Amino acid sequence: MPLLHIAMRAGKSEAYRQAILDGLYQAMRAALDVPEDDAFMSITEHEPANFRCGTGYGVARSDDALLIQITVFASRTAEQKKALYRQIADRLGANPGIRPEDVFVNVLDAPKENWSVGHGIAQFA
């Protein structure tokens, strides 16, 4: 039940943005074994004055940098997360052609009782 928020600079085509969403979904299916059609993602585009990615940690990021935040059940292992990071960088590199240096990922663990996916009930608690 991952929930994804992607932040990026404005100006990319719809096809580019859809390739990001598709690549992230495929990466989660491969690394986290999420069920088919478990896709809850949003992209927020920002004007250059409202979007900044530094070069901290020895990574030379470009204007194509993505900030990807993924909230998952707290049951994911470190190995699954590492596989997810690799899958994301590889898939977004293949399509739409984003450099690995421009893929910034943050995974947040949330207990299952913190989720309601509809009907006002805690389906996983």
Rank of each mutant, 00 (worst) to 15 (best):
A94E: 14
T55H: 15
Q18I: 09
R17Y: 07
N106S: 12
V117P: 01
A39Y: 12
S62K: 03
D64C: 00
E101Q: 14
A125L: 05
Q69Y: 09
V59N: 02
N114V: 06
L32M: 09
A65E: 05
Q26D: 15
A74T: 08
Y57W: 12
R76V: 08
L67G: 05
C53S: 14
A65T: 01
W115L: 03
A65R: 03
R61V: 01
D22T: 15
A94L: 10
L108K: 13
D64E: 14
K81M: 11
I121V: 15
S42N: 15
G54L: 08
P96I: 07
A10S: 15
Q123G: 09
V105N: 08
S62I: 02
T71E: 10
Q80G: 00
V107Q: 00
R76D: 00
G23C: 05
G93N: 04
D90M: 10
M8D: 02
H5G: 14
F40A: 14
D109I: 05
S116T: 14
A19P: 06
Y25T: 10
L84P: 04
P35Q: 10
V105P: 02
E101T: 13
Y16K: 04
A83Q: 12
R17V: 10
N95F: 08
A27D: 03
A10K: 13
M28V: 05
D90C: 09
A7L: 12
M8F: 01
G97W: 08
T55Q: 14
I70N: 01
S75E: 12
I98R: 00
F40Q: 10
F51N: 01
M41T: 09
R9I: 07
V107G: 01
D90Q: 12
A74E: 11
R61N: 04
I20L: 02
A7Y: 11
N106Q: 14
H46N: 13
Y25R: 06
V72I: 12
S75N: 11
S42W: 11
G58C: 05
A10N: 11
R52D: 14
K112M: 14
N50C: 11
V72G: 04
S75P: 07
A31F: 03
A78W: 08
V72Q: 00
Q26E: 15
R86N: 10
A7W: 10
G23P: 01
P48A: 05
A74I: 02
M1G: 13
Q26M: 10
G118D: 05
P2A: 09
Q69M: 11
A27L: 00
S75L: 09
V103G: 01
